[in-house]
Design a protein around this nucleic acid. Structure first.
Lengths: 206, 206
DNA sequence: CTTGACGGCTAATCAGAATTAGCCTATAAT
DNA sequence: ATTATAGGCTAATTCTGATTAGCCGTCAAG
């Protein structure tokens, strides 16, 4: 990886753990394996490093969103993927979602950084809201809605059902971000949550 | 309020919005209405202010916990309070919990500060975990468990039912912390969540 | 071969924020 | 009345961390 990019990478790691203000350009340089002044050959200043990270994130999220939209717009694609959905699809969806959020290194660091910086930056708050509230609810709402349409799940209120699906996942995620050692426990709880969710909304109860 | 305490109060306000490192002793002093050096008549240094806030919080939480414990230990007290519980009790419990967390000024500021500082301080992470995961689940688990014992709620897994009750409340709380303007929307969602929860677990379904 | 851009380094410099020194006033206890 | 203390102020001082200056080696393009 070229230095310029390694700087962003290491900076993100540090920012996500300590917050912007607690990280010194020196720390970043050290991890990159150069001296602090050399950073300035690549970025105008510390703030520019932060901004570049945000930019990169925006790009990634934009890609991600456009992909979702394309699928959302194209019923054949959806049908293709979800034509043989069943109860297990839902459980898979939950587990995959959780594990992706939890283990994807970039996502994880970015989420933690957002968590730390959200309150003093409106834009970051908005990004957080979008990534961890609005988009998950609407995207998963679409999937669960499909399942409901097929009678796999039963409800008269898809958004709230989606909330019931997602909120525990989110809560467990924050637990693991805070104390990774609780991951095993969280995974067990996740399993139980999904099984119970299936009992509550699955056709088994009808 | 005496100066010494006002310092803690204003510092907490600032820390909860900007994080420890982004707040200057000058800012605190200004809000208190004194000059920065005067702060040092009350606290050894900036860190001591932070520590005093944590101390105060520990005391409050300890009190709170001991009260819960006393109730938990004393079945007559519980019976007294919860003998005529019904579906509405559960809805009340949810709304009160949410509104208390959301509007209690001290709680709110402290929660936001914890959110910001949690990742670089094991102790704070533990406090957060306790206050917003373990304790709510165990305390509400007790209450919902009582309701289940009385047949008001039906489940074979009280902990997961409690998670289903609490996780959406927590998620909506974080939404409001981030963007208070979404409070109305969140309250509406909360209502729907609780009604749906009642449908899913209440005896109406049995 | 030689030159200029790139990216590294050391040694300043700058800026800003925490903290200390030392003084002053009010007040409460002797 | 005297004095000790609490708590405020202004004016340093100190510390720390970001940034700049200026030097140097490498290497690719001409």
């Amino acid at each position: 990886m070229d230095t310029k990019h390694k700087i962003l990478d290491e900076a993100l790691t540090l920012f996500s753990e300590w917050g912007y203000a607690n990280v010194y350009v020196n720390d970043i340089a050290e991890r990159v394996g150069i001296k602090a002044p050399s950073l300035y050959k690549h970025y105008k200043n510390k703030q520019a490093i932060f901004d570049a990270i945000i930019d990169e994130m925006n790009n990634r999220f934009m890609e991600q969103a456009s992909q979702l939209n394309i699928n959302g717009m194209d019923p054949t694609k959806d049908a293709d993927i979800y034509k043989n959905m069943n109860e297990d699809s839902m459980i898979e969806l939950g587990k995959n979602l959780f594990l992706y959020y939890l283990h994807d290194d970039y996502t994880k660091r970015f989420r933690k950084m957002l968590t730390i910086e959200q309150f003093h930056d409106k834009d970051l708050a908005a990004v957080y809201q979008s990534q961890y509230y609005d988009m998950p609810l609407s995207y998963q709402g679409m999937l669960l809605g499909l399942m409901a349409a097929q009678g796999i799940l039963i409800t008269d209120n898809v958004p709230i059902m989606t909330l019931h699906f997602y909120a525990p996942i989110y809560l467990l995620l924050t637990v693991c971000d805070r104390e990774p050692k609780r991951e095993k426990e969280a995974l067990k709880t996740l399993e139980e949550h999904l099984r119970q969710f299936d009992k509550l909304y699955g056709r088994s109860i009808a």
